[in-house]
């Protein structure tokens, strides 16, 4: 289990993370989302042990990831920009990984063939997408207990995204925990089971994605007379839009209870629609007054 408690981090006068706490169970695929500068990469760097937090601890299986280098044997971090020294090849990095981790060479060779990566070619001749593939494959072939992916799909073409998503989903099925940050919320939605929204260094909202999506719904209602917003004061409205006698609302709350409450206002028509992860993110941000 990954447990982060009261993480705080400042870069000079700028407070990047404030009191961030997370608990991610084994086998979960956790989507970390937020606007640019929200602190996603910093949080991932702290979890991976690259960066020391000013306050709080990150424990993977009750071991500190910063202080205890050996716990990082079960942790793989793929940053948003991979670094490979000039002149090095996949083979030279693979050799390093083989000597540091329980590296699955047959699996790696197979993936390299699948993703058309020449292990002896130097990285200088690789495109951004190829470097990205290589970095992800190197990471998954150590069979990590925790995989951290920053800007997971950056530079990858759709087919490669699909294949990598499948690899991660399979490994999560085997008990691997993945924390994935991405701006592609539609893709995260397809295989994340939990999520966290970071905003200005704080966790704005987090939890089980399905539960959260059930908790927030879009309601469209039409009334005989033009309704006023005051009519819905008893509801937790995240977004309100009216056009004549038709009202569109995003409301937080148990679907049946909200529906029953709206029915009491005698609408001519009432539709309930589920929200996507992307919409959920946007409504959460809007409801906190953050402009996107």
């Amino acid at each position: 289990m990954l447990k982060a408690e009261q993480i705080a981090k400042a870069f000079g006068a700028k407070q990047v993370l404030r009191d961030v706490s997370l608990e991610i169970p084994d086998g979960a695929v956790f989507g970390l989302v937020g606007v640019n500068g929200a602190g996603k990469s910093t949080l991932l760097r702290i979890i991976s042990g690259v960066m020391r937090s000013d306050q709080g601890t990150v424990m993977l299986d009750e071991q500190d990831t910063y202080r205890n280098a050996s716990v990082r044997k079960t942790l793989a971090f793929v940053p948003d920009e991979s670094y490979f020294p000039s002149g090095s090849s996949i083979a030279s990095v693979r050799d390093l990984y083989e000597s540091l981790y329980a590296f699955d060479r047959p699996m790696f060779d197979q993936y390299c063939r699948q993703f058309e990566l020449d292990q002896n070619q130097t990285f200088a001749g690789f495109s951004k997408g190829m470097k990205r593939r290589a970095a992800i494959l190197l990471a998954v072939c150590i069979h990590p207990r925790l995989l951290l992916l920053d800007e997971a799909y950056d530079g990858l073409e759709p087919l490669a995204r699909l294949q990598i998503r499948k690899i991660i989903a399979d490994m999560a099925g085997d008990g691997m925990t993945a924390v994935i940050s991405s701006h592609s919320l539609l893709e995260l939605e397809e295989f994340c089971d939990s999520f966290g929204i970071l905003e200005s260094g704080r966790i704005l909202s987090s939890g089980d994605l399905l539960e959260k999506k059930e908790e927030v719904n879009k309601y469209q209602a039409a009334f005989e007379t033009v309704p006023s917003p005051e009519m819905f004061q008893d509801l937790d409205i995240m977004r309100y839009k009216s056009e004549g006698r038709v009202v569109q609302m995003v409301i937080r709350g148990e679907r049946e209870k909200v529906r029953a409450s709206l029915e009491k206002k005698h609408p001519i028509l009432l539709d309930v629609l589920p929200v996507t992860f992307e919409e959920l993110f946007i409504y959460e941000m809007e409801s906190r007054g953050t402009s996107l």
Partner: peptide
């Protein structure tokens, strides 16, 4: 380099 720190400081060494 930020990317270099990410790459090497996350290794189990």
């Amino acid at each position: 380099k930020r990317s270099g720190c990410d790459q090497y400081f996350s290794l189990p060494i």
